[in-house]
Design a protein around this nucleic acid. Structure first.
Length: 421
RNA sequence: GGAGAGGUGGCUGAGCGGUUGAAAGCGGCGGUCUCGAAAACCGUUGUAGUCGUAAGGCUACCGGGGGUUCGAAUCCCCCCCUCUCCGCCA
């Protein structure tokens, strides 16, 4: 969420920034409401001041056994007027907050301006896509050959876009989870295993709500939301907290299943493991001081990239253009892994700096030693990595002419074998 | 699921209708003392909004939301959370 005062004092900055995102937002109504709000706020506070003073006087009179009826009568009407104003004020504030909650973050100046994914800019590339002496298969064909992913039974027991991992497939899923967690922990991230169901406040804190309710799964009674990413519970770890300067930076890593209804994505990646309603992911989350956050984004992205290097999977890193970034992000790098089955780089990680956008929503602050007041922390996160897609990449990149799949060396101790088949 | 207890400042803990933004203690910060430190003593120590160039003023906040009242941390209603006991369960 953007700061109301910042918006009213920087209308043009906000307007320009949102235009770069392709979001044409009309701020005039907001600004008018803001003026009205400040006006009423002053009136209400003046009246309260009067009420406080006079009420004290009434107390004094009563203790002295003197009559205070005329003052009490006057204060009754003052109280009524305060109630009236506050009701209007409350209406304005609610409207403003729900408006601000739907305004996306301002892109950082270093983000390339662009309309959609075609305007993203590649900034790094690692590894060479392997040249095959045979026609490389899609992961679902490889999986079928070894009977390690059962899409049909996934559909039977749950529905479309659910899969059952089986035998070496299940084992590979587990091996990747442990490998990634160990890797991230060794990079200085504290491992956490959070709740997978969260309340509405948490979803609002990280920006999923109120705007993207349709993308989420939700329980009926009592009402909980299934997390679409560990970013939600882990970032909300410190919601409504004031951290001290020496606590920062905080680094967390978490494995969780992720649940996404992905409304509107139908027709895309209908086959295979790429787009599922439930998938596993290891996440990286940081809480940092504002002046460090862009350097912290670089180092976070480097940790995620290193996982792919350890696994020997070719990838490239792109910086998302202003029009393609997520709602809450100020700057995002996507890491894309090479998939021979598709002859394409596909997203396997998304690393973002949210600056103070989530921190303001979730009220996560810190206090500098020796300084008065508090500041919002900056939050960041990135996948490190999406497990299902990593598994896809291993199957497709490791496939051999005889149909077997070579497991990356660093993963073999976790997997317990050198190859599948 | 049933029964009970409770949620107050960084922490412990008083207050239960009128100088209470909140006693007291601990902690933190500054100072006196000391070669230095400890102890002791003195002072200070919440967050946010708003007005103001500033100094500072005002307003709000005692789990959250409503209500009663001239006035609420204190009274009433609803909700949330924590703890204890019983039941059930991995």
């Amino acid at each position: 969420m953007l700061d109301a005062r910042f918006v009213r004092e920087n209308i043009d900055v906000v307007k320009d920034a949102l235009a770069r995102r392709g979001a044409a937002v009309d701020l005039s109504e907001f600004v008018a409401a803001e003026q009205e709000r400040l006006h009423l706020l002053r009136e209400s506070e003046d009246l309260r001041n009067r009420r406080n003073t006079v009420s004290e006087e009434i107390g004094r009179l009563k203790r002295a056994k003197e009559n205070a009826d005329h003052l009490m009568g006057e204060m009754k009407s003052v109280a009524d007027r305060i109630r009236e104003i506050d009701e209007v004020l409350k209406g304005i504030e609610e409207k403003q907050i729900s408006f601000l909650l739907t305004i996306p973050n301002i892109p950082d100046a270093s983000v390339p301006v662009g309309k959609d994914e075609h305007d993203n800019v590649e900034i790094r590339k690692w590894g060479e896509p392997r040249s095959f002496t045979f026609e490389p298969l899609n992961h679902w064909d490889i999986a079928a050959k070894h009977d390690i992913i059962d899409f049909d039974r996934g559909a039977k027991i749950a529905g479309a876009r659910f899969a059952v991992m089986k035998g070496a497939g299940a084992r590979l899923e587990r091996a990747l989870m442990n490998f990634m967690l160990d890797h991230n922990a060794a990079s200085g991230y504290t491992e956490v295993f959070p709740p997978l169901l969260v309340n509405r406040d948490s979803m609002t804190g990280t920006g999923q709500l109120p705007k993207f309710e349709a993308d989420l799964f939700k329980t009926a009674n009592p009402e909980f939301y299934l997390i679409p990413t560990a970013e939600v519970p882990v970032t909300n770890l410190h919601r409504d907290e004031i951290l001290s300067e020496e606590d920062l930076p905080l680094y967390y890593t978490a494995y969780t299943p992720c649940f996404r209804s992905e409304a509107g994505s139908y027709g895309k990646d209908v086959r295979g493991l790429i787009r599922q309603h439930q998938f596993n992911k290891v996440e990286l989350v940081k809480f940092v001081k504002p002046e460090d956050s862009f350097a912290e984004l670089e180092s976070l992205t480097a940790v995620a990239e290193d996982i792919l290097r350890q696994l020997g999977l070719p990838y490239r890193t792109i910086v998302l253009c202003s029009g393609d970034m997520g709602f809450s992000s100020a700057k995002t790098y996507d890491i894309e892994v090479w998939l021979p089955g598709q002859q394409k780089y596909r997203e396997i990680s998304s690393c973002s700096n949210f600056v103070d956008f989530q921190a303001r929503r979730a009220n996560i602050r810190f206090k500098r030693a020796g300084k008065k007041g508090t500041e919002f922390v900056h939050t960041l996160n990135g996948s490190g990595l999406a497990i299902g897609r990593t598994l896809v990449a291993i199957l497709e990149n490791g496939q051999q002419e005889d149909g077997s799949v070579v497991i990356p060396e660093k993963l073999q101790p976790y997997f317990g074998a050198e190859k599948i088949g």
